[in-house]
């Protein structure tokens, strides 16, 4: 990689906050509370924490370890690193999924990010114009979201949406262009504490709401917390509860996303990955359970009751909560602005992590400069985003990308990664590699968990997921041309990445690099001397 300037993280805290920033997103605040309330309330936390211990943290450690090992071999992209770990071209081309996921997810995540900023600005400048009783405001809120997202018809969003989207992709491009330490790390070191402060501000406001409507004394903060946390143990006998818990942990921690493997590749042999990986996961859990678990449904229940405290990620976040803020009176606009700015920060720390792996790949595979790689990845992802901006009706295009790439492919990549790590690279070698520079020891049982339990768990959950969703999704592809064409956009992206990987493979061989991982890294002896 002689022509590529070697990038490194500035500090250990920097890489931890960058990985945590990648993991903390809208799902922590919007998806988690809804999923928990629907699947046993407090009892949901039993399968949730089991999934964290069995899949989330161990598979995360494996990914951190693979990334750092690949970096020691001079590689920073998922295909190259997987080729080294898996010892050949099959693993290398499966590693292309580690580029496809962040690239395609960015194509719609950048749009959602711009909605958050648009809502934050709207609340900061007087609200989104909700007035009247709850039912009227709910209808107005739905209309407003329709204008922002364009979900009412193809390309039917307001002009402001275009402006906010252009601003968001420019900001993302700027920080990725600034580089790892000077751009992403510096931004996350500022954004993560800012996000925590915003969350605390909203949390304090929500927990001090008391009983806002004396005519409905049953709608109070304690009842709102009860709506989220009162356990229903019968849910534990339902397989769907366990599936939902595994899915929530899995997507929340961003394992199998192609990001951690890239971020960890900028670490040295002596840098710790064990404590860093655990700390990043713990940070994600604080935002998810500590903030998401207390704010969202509690606020919705206090003003709207159990019937109002429902809805998926978009419904809860962009339709229900604006009604809740409107019920808070004048201070509601401030709380709304802080809340949506926090979601914007959560989104941008994630979206930056989606661009970096693809940029690093273009530099590595094609030998392009930093600037050229940034321009290429921005233009390519903007093309995909434009597709989503043109096909906004019922958000079918966005939803199609989210299901096939942002959900199903993540399962596949995580399973591939954990199997290559445990069974091809070797679990004993993997554990030894993980402990270089480690500040804490990984319990011995984790090796067994990574080798046997995690792959089984992932395959079972994926099979159940396919059984639950795949039939309807295939029907949608047949019936809806937009869904089918959107999948075509994804396949085109995959094809482009495979071609670039083939070019990179030839370049790496010509440079005499050990792309099949046959020899130990060059820093082995150097590392021992340090």
């Amino acid at each position: 990689m002689a022509e590529v300037k070697q990038e490194r993280w500035g500090t250990r805290l920097g890489v931890i906050l960058a990985v945590a920033g990648s993991a903390v997103g809208l799902g922590n605040f919007l998806r988690f509370p809804g999923t928990a309330a629907q699947n046993g309330g407090g009892a949901f936390m039993i399968p949730y924490f089991i999934a964290l211990l069995v899949v989330g943290i161990p598979v995360g450690w494996a990914e951190w370890t693979m990334g750092r090992y690949g970096g020691r071999k001079g590689f920073h992209s998922s295909p190259a690193i997987m080729g080294v770990i898996g010892g050949g071209s099959v693993a290398r081309y499966l590693g292309v999924l580690g580029l496809l996921i962040p690239m395609v997810v960015y194509m719609y995540y950048g749009l959602i990010e711009s909605w958050c900023l648009q809502y934050a600005v709207a609340f900061a400048t007087g609200g989104i114009g909700l007035d009247g009783n709850t039912a009227t405001m709910a209808a107005q809120s739905g209309t407003y979201f329709g204008q922002v997202s364009g979900s009412a018809g193809e390309g039917a969003m307001s002009a402001g949406t275009w402006g906010f989207w252009l601003f968001v992709i420019t900001v993302n491009a700027y920080f990725v262009w600034r580089g790892l330490s000077g751009g992403i790390e510096k931004f996350c070191q500022w954004a993560m504490p800012a996000m925590a402060i915003c969350a605390v501000v909203v949390l304090v406001r929500v927990l001090t709401l008391g009983t806002p409507d004396p005519a409905h004394p049953e709608l109070n903060v304690v009842s709102g917390l009860g709506y989220m946390w009162n356990p229903r143990f019968d849910a534990l006998g339902n397989a769907e509860t366990w599936l939902a818990a595994a899915g929530q942990i899995f997507f929340s921690l961003s394992v199998g996303f192609g990001v951690i493997i890239n971020y960890a590749s900028y670490m040295r042999k002596k840098d710790d990955v064990v404590l860093s990986g655990l700390t990043a996961s713990a940070t994600n859990e604080v935002f998810e359970v500590g903030f998401g678990g207390l704010i969202t449904l509690t606020a919705a229940f206090v003003f709207l009751g159990a019937a109002g405290a429902t809805g998926g990620t978009f419904g809860l976040g962009f339709n229900t909560l604006p009604v809740v803020f409107a019920h808070m009176g004048p201070v509601g606009n401030v709380v709304g602005a802080v809340w949506f700015f926090m979601l914007f920060l959560a989104a941008i720390t994630s979206s930056l992590s989606m661009l970096q792996p693809v940029k690093a790949f273009l530099q590595e595979a094609l030998g392009w400069s930093n600037g050229r790689s940034v321009i290429a990845v921005v233009l390519f992802t903007a093309g995909g985003s434009l597709w989503n901006l043109q096909h906004t009706k019922d958000l079918v295009a966005l939803d199609t990308m989210d299901f096939w790439v942002g959900t199903a492919t993540i399962f596949v990549l995580a399973t591939v990664q954990v199997i290559y790590f445990a069974w091809v690279f070797g679990i004993d070698r993997g554990m030894e590699e993980a402990h270089h520079g480690a500040r804490i020891r990984i319990p011995k049982i984790v090796a067994f968990v990574i080798k046997y339990v995690a792959p089984t768990y992932l395959i079972v959950v994926f099979a159940a997921f396919c059984r639950q969703s795949l039939g309807d999704r295939i029907d949608a592809l047949v019936e809806d041309p937009v869904a089918a064409q959107t999948l075509g956009v994804v396949v085109f992206g995959l094809f482009a990445l495979v071609v670039a990987t083939r070019i990179g493979e030839k370049r790496w061989r010509a440079q005499g690099l050990d792309l099949d991982g046959k020899f130990p890294p060059d820093d082995d002896e150097e590392g021992e001397r340090r």
Binding site: R12, G42, T279, A282, E285
Partner: peptide, 30 residues
């Protein structure tokens, strides 16, 4: 909110905050 609800909430919050607190104490100490 039921007693069981309080228990689950307090235990879950204690678990995540304790883990994060312990992790950051170790990271910042090194």
């Amino acid at each position: 909110m039921t007693t069981a609800g309080w228990i689950f909430m307090v235990c879950s919050l204690t678990a995540v905050w304790s883990l994060a607190g312990w992790c950051y104490a170790r990271v910042l100490r090194d």
